[in-house]
Structures are given as C-alpha cells and as structure tokens.
C-alpha cells in the first residue's frame, strides 16, 4: 500500500465509510505498520476530541418561542426606520394641510371676475385655530413619545 492509497483508506476509515470487510482489512494493515497505526490513532483521537468539544445542540429553538432580544445594532436600525416612517408621515400630512398657493386655485375659464376674487378659500381659513404645520408638530411629538423604550420590568 503506497502513501496515496493509505491516505485514501484512512479518510474512509475515519469518515466511517468502509464496509466491514474493508475495515477489517485496513485494521489488519494497521496492525502490521506501527507508523500507520500511530497516525491513524492520532487522527481518530482528534476526531473524538472534536466531537467532545463541539456537541450538537440538544434542541433547536422555534422562531415563535421566547428568545432573547435581538442585538443592539438591529434594535437601533429598527428604531431609526420607525423614526423615518413617522417623520415622513408627519411631513406628508403637514404638506397636505399647507395653505394653497395662488397658482393652485382653480379659476373658471373665461370669467374675468374670478381673476380678482377667487371663489376658493385657502385651507387655513377653513380650519380656524389650527396653525400651519401644527399637525406636523403633533406628529413629531407623537413619534417622540412612541419611540421611548418600553420597560418590560414594570413602571417605576
């Protein structure tokens, strides 16, 4: 048996891929060669040690089971996304209630009077008491309150 054949058979031996007959024949060879026996024993011992320090987990956690909180980086990323979403919502609503510009007022065609006294009323005038962008400010305040960490240990 040359070196290449020995390594090939030793891989099968250590990898438990030999038939009983092949194993018996290989062990017979090992009994006749001290050097090959020593090498096989050393690698077999290493395999045993690897199994010993790397036992498989007893059970795998289900995704729905109680699991520890995700890493801080993920929490931080999620919070930033929440801020961005709420901020965009607030800006969008604030944009929606802004006063209409003159160019946005629809004018009836061929009516000279409408150029002087447009019939449309600016939206701020229709909602007295609500300042421009007040709604956006409320959204921002809401988002700030909503993004506070939630205590799971009870209130102080």
């Amino acid at each position: 048996m040359n070196r290449e054949q020995f390594e090939d058979m030793l891989a099968d031996y250590l990898g438990d891929e030999m038939t009983p007959e092949q194993r018996q024949a290989f062990e017979q060879h090992l009994a006749e060669s001290d050097a090959d026996r020593a090498e096989a024993d050393a690698l077999a011992a290493l395999m045993g040690q690897l199994e010993e320090i790397m036992p498989a987990p007893c059970s795998l956690p289900a995704s729905g089971s109680a699991s520890p909180a995700p890493p801080a980086s993920v929490m931080r990323f999620g919070r930033i996304l929440a801020y961005a979403a709420i901020l965009l919502l607030g800006v969008g609503i604030g944009w929606g209630i802004r006063p209409m510009e003159q160019s946005e007022v629809e004018l009836p065609p061929n009516n000279p009077d409408s150029l002087v006294t447009p019939k449309s009323t600016p939206r701020d005038d229709r909602w007295p008491g609500i300042e421009r962008n007040a709604f956006a400010k409320n959204c921002l305040a809401f988002s700030t309150a909503f993004s506070r960490p939630i205590s799971t240990t009870g209130r102080n």
Partner: peptide, 9 residues
C-alpha cells in the same frame, strides 16, 4: 478525501 485528510492533519 484528500481535503478531508489534509484538514485533519
């Protein structure tokens, strides 16, 4: 097999 053997070595 060769990769396996070399890895163990």
């Amino acid at each position: 097999k060769s990769h396996y053997f070399r890895a163990l070595q």
